Simulated scan of single mutants.
Amino acid sequence: MLTILCIDNDQQCLTQLRHDLQLLFTEAFAISTATDLQQADLFLSQQYTQVALILCSQKLISANPLSIWQNEKYQAIRKIIYAREATAEQLVDSINIAQCNYFLALPYHTKVLQKIINAQIIDYNKSIINKCSNRLQSSDNSGKDEVILKQTESKLSHQFQEKFLDYSLYSDSNYPI
């Protein structure tokens, strides 16, 4: 069974979130909690293959941005960060540092939270399927990789050149192409 991990140092908020998630996803997910990023990191190090989604308070991101958020092992896990009041700087940090997939403003409505989580789980499943598919393709195409890469590179350079030329037409730059 996949797990949703909730991280918050406010015990009342964590209890309410856990309660709401258990009502919404009783049979679909296990709901686990952590009161700080160290607990969450320990939990993830032991069971990261079972965790599909992390819900985390924005306060904890600011406190320790380089912990679990940038670990390559946890890339497939979807991350929702929530806050009561968020500044533009907090939103930027949540996206750039914590690499969150969704930012949720509190208070939330349970039906809205359910839709957000459902969408994130669909994205999680897609990323896992793509990862497995890529592994299968790489093992099946061991001799064909070089040809595929050359074709992709030629398409990319052509697309880049078109976009660059389009940009330069509208640019204020004085530099010639």
Rank of each mutant, 00 (worst) to 15 (best):
K79Q: 06
C100G: 02
L60G: 04
N96R: 15
Q58P: 00
A119I: 02
L60H: 06
A28C: 02
A86H: 04
I68A: 10
P107K: 12
K115E: 08
A119V: 02
Y124L: 01
N125T: 15
A105I: 13
L23K: 12
E89K: 14
N101F: 06
N134D: 13
W69T: 05
A34D: 03
C132D: 11
F43L: 15
V92G: 00
T33F: 06
R135T: 08
C100V: 03
L104H: 03
I129D: 13
I54F: 06
N125M: 10
R84D: 15
I54M: 14
K115H: 14
A98I: 08
V92K: 09
S94F: 00
F29Y: 15
I54Y: 09
I117Y: 03
Y48T: 01
L104E: 04
T110G: 06
V92N: 04
W69M: 04
D41L: 12
Q99Y: 04
T26G: 08
L24T: 03
T35L: 10
A63L: 11
I121V: 15
A76K: 08
F29S: 03
Q50I: 00
L136I: 12
A30P: 00
A119K: 15
A40W: 09
L44K: 06
N130Q: 14
D36I: 07
W69I: 04
N125F: 03
C100E: 00
K59D: 13
W69S: 03
L44E: 04
T87M: 03
Y124K: 07
V51C: 11
A52R: 10
A83K: 04
F103S: 02
I54P: 06
K59A: 14
F43H: 13
E27A: 06
Q39N: 13
R135V: 03
S62N: 13
A63M: 12
F103W: 12
N64P: 00
N134T: 05
L136F: 03
N101L: 03
C132P: 00
K131D: 02
S94Q: 05
P65Q: 09
K59V: 07
W69D: 06
Q50W: 00
L91Q: 13
S67Y: 02
N101H: 15
Y124H: 13
S32P: 00
F43Q: 10
A88M: 10
V51W: 11
E27Y: 08
I77C: 09
K79M: 04
W69E: 06
R78D: 01
H19D: 08
L42W: 10
N101M: 02
Y74Q: 08
I122V: 12
Q22L: 07
Y48G: 01
I121W: 10
L24G: 04
C132Y: 05
R18L: 01
I54G: 07
Q38I: 11
L23F: 08
Q58G: 05
L42C: 08
K115I: 06
Q70S: 11
Y74K: 10
A52T: 04
I61P: 01
I116F: 05
S133E: 09
K73T: 11
F43E: 08
A52V: 02
Q38T: 12
I122L: 10
A86F: 02
C56M: 13
N101V: 03
K73I: 05
N96Q: 14
